[in-house]
Computed example of a mutant assay.
Amino acid sequence: MTSNATNEAVEADLPAVVNEPRLWSNNGWTARVIKNEDDEGWAVAMTKDGESEPALVGPWTMGRDKKSPKPLDASAFQTLVKTASEVLRRHEHQLQALLHKKLSLTTALGPLSVTLDIVPDEEDPYAVLGARDDAGELLAEVRVGPEFKLTAASARAWVEDDFRQPD
């Protein structure tokens, strides 16, 4: 494949840049100004390329005629991309916090870090309960149900039971 043919193939795979008054698409995001179903105003929906649902939907400013929406522009689009990206980042952090729990214990074995990592498999969800020493060495790891609650009391009971499978 020649250099030109390679460049053309790569460009064909890239989404087109769209800069229309009610539709902007660039850098992996699409902003679409839509009629607000809740009132007589307008909203803007920000959708990441490849996703079916918008990451962010928010109110949009009316134009000068007080009936039609203000057209999208480069500055507004960049602000919307930044805001929608932050929403996705917060969502990912929240999901990570729900799926990964960690606490520290002082035990007869010394300081331990006990973790619970939930694997949200659609057919067989489970969690992995693990214990590491101060140096980060894995001392024990067992598979538990996804409903297992990691608390200081449950972690201490597991450690004191020689890391046997919790009930």
Rank of each mutant, 00 (worst) to 15 (best):
L56A: 08
A45N: 10
S25Q: 15
I34N: 11
R64V: 03
L95E: 08
A131M: 02
N7I: 05
Q78D: 15
E37R: 11
A97R: 08
G63Y: 06
F163V: 00
K66F: 09
R22T: 11
K101G: 08
L112W: 10
S113H: 03
G50W: 13
E51K: 10
R143P: 09
V33I: 15
A45H: 05
A108F: 09
K48F: 07
E141Y: 03
V87Y: 00
A45P: 02
V81L: 07
S113Y: 09
T107R: 01
D124Y: 12
T61A: 15
L95R: 12
S68M: 07
H91R: 11
L129F: 02
D167F: 11
A157Y: 05
K101W: 01
E141A: 08
V18F: 04
P71F: 09
H93I: 09
L103I: 02
G136F: 04
P125Y: 05
G110I: 10
E122R: 14
L109D: 05
V18M: 08
P21N: 01
G58Y: 09
T2D: 05
E92D: 08
Q165E: 14
G58H: 07
V119M: 03
R89Y: 03
L98N: 00
D161C: 00
F77T: 12
V87C: 07
L139Y: 01
L138V: 01
L80Q: 09
A31D: 01
L88P: 01
L112D: 08
T61E: 14
S3I: 07
N7S: 06
T83H: 11
V17K: 10
H93A: 15
P146R: 04
N7Q: 15
L80S: 06
P125I: 06
E53V: 09
V18T: 03
R64L: 14
R132P: 00
V142K: 13
I118V: 10
P71Y: 06
A31M: 10
P54H: 02
V44Y: 11
T115C: 05
P166R: 01
A45E: 14
Y126D: 06
G28W: 08
L116I: 06
W42M: 14
D65K: 01
V159T: 08
K70E: 14
R156W: 10
N27I: 03
G110P: 03
L109G: 10
E20T: 05
S68P: 00
S25I: 08
K82P: 04
E53H: 03
L98K: 13
V10Y: 11
E86A: 12
D133Q: 12
G41R: 02
L109A: 15
A155L: 12
W42A: 03
S154A: 07
G58C: 09
D39M: 07
F163N: 03
H100C: 04
V159L: 00
P69I: 00
P21I: 09
N26L: 12
K102A: 07
K48I: 08
P120Q: 00
M1S: 10
G41S: 12
A157Q: 03
S25K: 15
E11C: 09
K35R: 12
M62F: 11
S104W: 02
G28P: 04
T6M: 13
P166E: 08
P21A: 04
W42T: 01
A55N: 14
E86W: 07
L105G: 06
K48M: 13
P71E: 04
N7M: 13
V10L: 09
L95F: 04
V159E: 05
V44C: 11
D65N: 15
L112V: 05
V87W: 02
A157G: 02
L56G: 09
